[in-house]
Design a protein around this nucleic acid. Structure first.
Lengths: 358, 358
DNA sequence: CTGAAAGCGCTAACAA
DNA sequence: TTGTTAGCGCTTTCAG
């Protein structure tokens, strides 16, 4: 690591754009109208004679005027920023959702303020400060921990925010997500249908709503098939990264009556599972079948392809953004929770009859 | 996809925080001082008697005052926002860099405005508008395309921005990156040292500086070993995703004198390579050795482990943020380009003597 | 249809 | 050390 050569660019920086930033007043003067009129034109307010509008637009073009949003923000008391809280930008699942949010946001003239809550934990609450102080107009929260705090805490009350993926269907906060219970039951049912009787679950801490929902799905599917669940078959992980999945697998497979199938509540975990099983010399799916959750693009790339519950990530983000935008447009209107469809994608990690990916 | 039940939360939204947002003036009145003094306390300006400060702070606490940043922004003509342009948030490589940026940014009281340039292409130039209109104080650009445009265009001239990963060492724009040529040469040299004589290159379009730099490293390493390069050994991809890597591999391996080793300029591409080779029934590294670039966390998870050139992603982001912050602090000062160290991480995808990962 | 004028809440001279 | 005051650039009544 070294510092490369440096050149004098000071000259380049003092010179250009030294123009004193033309304001609405300058445009008004140039066009021979008042600032109010310019403002009207700029905001497409009606009640401006076409001819006047022309003049203003000409002056704008001539002077190369561009709006000072800071001033407008103060005046309108809005920042046109949407806060997005993610536990980990590095997780492809969240990354896709963020793209969905971003797409809708900018379609509506908003920008996305991204906060990686995992990066500096414990500071979750301060993010809602951003809302209170109007630095952001609304928030979409994807971080289960933050959502929990927000659902309980005061700070978020009455603020325009929506929960995404982690949600309480009986709460008062607008949300978008999928039916986690049904999805998990489906995944486990698939494994059972394949003949497995000992199915392991790698799940997040039960303090998370989605973890409880998926756990319920797992329990229901097992019960429906009349299968008992040994204690060690349910492993709890602290994070969702590859390593967590590997570690949980090692622990799970160390038992005498180790499962012949593993359902992990995220693809990143499941990929860690695959890697651990490989290390243990187990064949997938012959010795142990694996099912993940999310269907990140990587799921189709690993070997064998990962069977998984597909979540419509982009659409989840887009729907969350739309929900929030609706809230902002009509602060008083009640907002329904939104559940999007999931679907089980069967690949080689669970089904031996499936050869290599298409 | 259906809409879930909706409940009346209107009541919850009109009621709370109906407080008319206490301002600096209210605090001043409550504390029995002037707004100027309150402002001084709030900004830790010195020249305030401890006793007075106490009074103010007490009033702040009592009234639950919190600063209106929109007003401050207008006044100081700064938004405390750092624009970050990424070609694809979904790519783990960029995600890690973003975390590095984010960490440094908030350490200094800035927030990160994230723009996924890949999401709506062609609009690259408009991002610099954000700088001109002061909606962001500075920008870090990670998108090669946007960087190219910015390096050439007028719009970015004189604006406070830094290039990250894609850069022109001879240009006037501050940058942080690694020595791509040396890194590529090292990677290819490693393959040659393993006995390979036909080494393929999967590279991005030559219009990118990093692609040219890495291509040069490849060429140099091959030439240094006295190896000729067949035309088909160099494949160009349009994107960096898994699929692109697979497709390029299929094309490359279809040739009569197909390479026995492949160097891909990104891990995501390389993972696509692995998956394509598997599909072709080739063993890695026995039949074909593979080397990637970046060392994303996934590289250690795939089977076999991916040999790759590690880039200090988090540190790249952090360094870029620090560089930009320096620029903002002293707009006139010349900024040196920063090159960080890379290192070759050898795993099973190239070295047959390496068993399973640790 | 257009203009005059009053701030939005804060910072920063300049005075005292 | 503290207070007074003039705006930052824009939107938005209210008049005309």
């Amino acid at each position: 690591m070294h510092e490369a050569d440096q050149r004098g660019e000071a000259a380049l920086l003092t010179e250009p754009d030294a123009a004193p930033a033309v304001s609405i007043g300058a445009v008004a003067a140039r066009a021979g109208v008042s600032v109010a009129t310019v403002s009207r034109v700029l905001n497409d307010s009606d009640g401006v004679r076409p001819k006047t509008r022309e003049k203003v637009l000409a002056a704008v073009a001539l002077l190369g005027y561009s709006m000072n949003h800071l001033a407008r923000n103060l005046r309108t008391s809005s920042s046109r920023l949407l806060l997005t809280m993610v536990p980990d930008v590095g997780n492809p699942f969240y990354a896709q959702i963020v793209r969905g949010i971003d797409a809708v946001a900018r379609e509506h003239g908003y920008f996305v303020l991204l906060c990686d809550t995992g990066a500096d934990a414990g500071r979750e609450r301060s993010y809602f400060e951003l809302l209170r102080t109007r630095r952001a107009d609304g928030a979409i929260c994807l971080d289960p921990d933050t959502i929990q705090q927000a659902l309980a805490g005061e700070l978020s009350a009455g603020q325009p925010w929506v929960a995404c993926c982690e949600f309480d269907p009986d709460g008062d906060v607008p949300y978008v997500g999928i039916d986690n219970r049904a999805a998990a039951a489906e995944a486990v049912g698939h494994l059972i249908g394949l003949g497995h009787r000992r199915v392991g679950l790698i799940n997040s801490d039960q303090r998370y709503l989605y973890a409880r929902q998926r756990r319920r799905g797992y329990d229901e599917a097992m019960a429906a098939a009349g299968l008992a669940v040994a204690a060690g078959w349910r492993q709890t992980v602290a994070g969702l990264d590859y390593e967590a999945g590997s570690a949980a697998t090692l622990a799970m497979m160390a038992q005498p009556d180790a499962p012949t199938a593993i359902f992990a509540v995220s693809d990143t975990l499941a990929i860690g599972v695959l890697s651990a099983l490989r290390r243990l010399g187990k064949r997938v799916p012959e010795d142990v079948a694996v099912v993940g959750f999310d269907d990140i693009s990587l799921a189709a790339q690993v070997a064998p392809g990962l069977t998984t519950v597909a979540q419509p990530m982009h659409e989840l983000g887009a729907a969350a953004a739309r929900l929030l935008l609706r809230r902002l447009a009509a602060p008083g209107a009640p907002l329904p929770g939104v559940l999007l469809a999931h679907r089980l994608v069967v690949r080689g990690s669970s089904d031996p009859s499936i050869r290599e990916a298409p």
